[in-house]
Design a binder for these strands. Structure first.
Length: 619
DNA sequence: GGGCGTGTCAC
RNA sequence: UUUGUGACACGCCC
């Protein structure tokens, strides 16, 4: 699969167009990969309008699922989506379109093939919905551009901050298909299916609604399609200045000469429907806003909100982008005059308005600790609070955030004080312990003397962590544009990038949460042992066991035939085929597990393992 | 080195 | 009963 995707990416980068994509989309390897990718999604447990869940497909024999997809694909009619509304952060509702599970599988099959093709043509400074790219990379990119021309007269300190009205919901179907064709998808059957998908409509409270425009929020393909749609906008702005060499190889691509010919530098960045353009003069910024309003209206069939598209002087105000606020400020004075300068540099700050709201919900969770009476559930709530704190802290990491960290820590600590006073009126003072003495997150808390509120279980302390331990990683290196999952080089760069930010291994005692207890109650049932799930999971088990017999350790071959053994065959259908319950054995060992006599010359280690599996069979 | 699960954030 | 993609963190298992 990976090799095929690499090939698509390479060819697409060379400008090749593709036909015959449909065959690739319904090949067995694509379907297996697609099911693997989406089965662990949260949504695999929720059904679409046909009330079918993921388990249903996992428990089919594999040929049946392949046939189900392959026989319908040439004249495929997707089902309407289920309409749901979710609260957004700003209180508004966001409409969701949930396709059926089968449609999600098919969309994922299409995404596996289409994404490499599109990725090769996407604009380098587009960051939303793309593999290996995150918000922090976009922010990093913006700051770098401001800093790169720190000495020059035309430093880009003016910004146009864009807002497209209901971007997902207003995408024009005909135009999108045209753009897909232009990007190299020349398989008419595939475009037909996408068109059917877009027009499948939705069902809201048993009523069918048709969709004339937009791509369903909730569809697996939708994010990719939105990037295809807006890719032309990226290049429309970007090819003038930022990436001139990419599309006009033989023309002048020297930025200095572009400047000479009267083009004002501009730099554009996009994250999904959020975008920012930087330029050096106020006049140019307003001209861009005006020009792009027309561009969106006529070329994109989208509307740019005039009120919410701001032109900002970065020296005076910050731009709101992805939950951060980016400003251009003077460099902080350093004692060494050699490094000090009067120049402006880009600085990302946390969006404190949003953060304050998040701290309030965090404080509510801290107060919940006081509602529990058992120390185990209190500890579980502390763990939950800690995960929220660490999540927030790590999100703020790429910005200048020490101030924000202290705001979080101060408020959490104050709330905790009130909770502890209430819980332990007499001893709450003794229940503030240094971080380094906590049993939870020991690696994180190593060497920190600051005291925090904690509770004691079996002589071990479990306490609330602090945000400030997560150090600001503001000055990390620029984003490597060559990282992509679709080339050998791109993957290598990515692995290098990741290992620099090495994770710290952590050893902590586990605590029983209410969820654990719920998980221990299972219904029993009979059914297929060799269903689709089994077919997939035994491959993972094979990789885990590295192609060796789990008992005698011999590598499998034609001479040493193998068998995938169910460790506990009495488990219910939804558990029997999970990876931990599968073990690859050579045929002789497998027979011995099922009570054939063990020859005396057999290795003692192997005998022990065989006996272990025998025990598990009996239970 | 792999798999599973939980949580945070963005859109 | 909340879809999707990406990033990150933690835990468990082998």
């Amino acid at each position: 699969m990976k090799q095929f995707q690499d090939l698509l990416y390479e060819k697409s980068g060379q400008g090749v167009s593709f036909t015959g994509l449909l065959e690739a989309m319904v090949s067995e390897v694509t379907i297996v990969t697609a099911v693997h990718n989406i089965k662990s999604n949260k949504g695999s447990k929720t059904a679409g309008v046909d009330r079918m869940k993921m388990d249903k497909y996992l428990q089919m024999p594999k040929e049946e699922l392949f046939q189900l997809i392959q026989s319908n694909i040439s004249n495929y009619k997707p089902k309407p989506a289920k309409r749901k509304y979710i609260e957004k952060a700003n209180g508004k509702k966001r409409p969701l379109g949930i396709p059926t599970v089968l449609d999600r599988i098919i969309q994922e099959c299409m995404r596996l093939i289409l994404e490499p093709i599109c990725e090769a043509r996407f604009y380098p400074h587009s960051y939303g919905f793309r593999p290996y790219r995150a918000q922090k990379h976009a922010i990093r990119d913006i700051v770098n551009v401001i800093n790169a021309s720190v000495k020059s007269k035309d430093q880009p300190v003016w910004a146009v901050e864009g807002d497209i009205k209901g971007c997902f919901d207003n995408i024009n179907h005909r135009l999108l298909l045209k753009k897909l064709w232009r990007i190299g998808i020349h398989d008419k059957r595939v475009l037909k299916i996408i068109s059917q998908m877009l027009k499948a409509g939705y069902i809201d409270q048993d009523l069918y609604h048709a969709t004339e425009m937009g791509t369903p929020q909730g569809g697996i393909l939708s994010p990719l399609l939105s990037n295809v749609y807006l890719n032309d906008f990226d290049w429309y702005v970007g090819r003038c200045y930022m990436e001139p060499h990419r599309q006009c190889k033989h023309k002048c691509n020297d930025t200095r000469r572009l400047k000479w010919s009267g083009i004002t530098p501009k730099y554009n960045f996009r994250y999904a429907d959020d975008w920012v353009i930087l330029t050096s003069t106020e006049q140019e910024a307003f001209r861009m806003k005006h020009e792009l309003t027309k561009y969106f209206k006529h070329r994109m069939k989208l509307e740019l909100s005039q009120e919410k598209t701001y032109v900002t002087d970065l020296r005076k105000n910050g731009i709101h982008f992805l939950g951060y606020i980016v400003k251009a400020e003077r460099k902080r004075k350093t004692p060494d005059p050699a490094t000090w300068s009067d120049n402006l540099v880009g600085k990302p700050f946390p969006d404190m308005e949003r953060l304050t709201k998040k701290i309030h919900t965090l404080q509510k969770e801290v107060r919940k600790i006081g509602l529990y009476t058992q120390s185990n559930t209190q500890a579980a709530q502390i763990q939950y609070v800690n995960s929220v704190i660490m999540g927030l802290a790590q999100y703020l990491q790429p910005s200048i955030c020490s101030h924000a960290y202290h705001a979080i820590d101060r408020r959490v600590n104050n709330t905790a004080l009130a909770v502890w006073k209430n819980l332990f009126p007499k001893q709450y003072n003794q229940m503030q312990v240094p971080l380094k003495e906590l049993s939870n997150l020991p690696h994180r808390h190593e060497g920190y003397d600051s005291k925090t509120f904690a509770i004691q279980i079996d002589g071990k302390w479990f306490g609330i962590t602090y945000a400030f331990i997560t150090h600001s990683r503001y000055e990390s290196k620029p984003f490597d544009q060559k990282m992509t999952p679709y080339t050998e080089d791109g993957r290598r760069r990515y692995v290098n990038y990741r290992t620099k930010h090495k994770p710290l291994p952590c050893d902590r005692p586990s605590i029983n949460t209410p969820e654990d207890i719920a998980l221990s109650i299972y219904a029993s049932g009979k059914g297929w042992k060799a269903n689709f799930e089994y077919f997939m999971n035994r491959e993972y088990a094979y990789n885990r066991d590295k192609g060796k017999c789990k008992c005698c350790g011999r590598y499998f071959s034609e001479l040493i035939p193998k068998h995938c053994h169910h460790v506990n065959p009495r488990l219910p259908i939804e558990r029997i085929n999970k990876v931990p319950n599968l073990a690859w054995l050579c045929i002789p060992c497998h027979r011995m597990v099922h009570n054939s006599p063990i020859p005396p010359e057999l290795d003692a280690k192997a005998v022990r393992k065989i006996k272990k599996y025998r025990e598990k069979l009996k239970k």
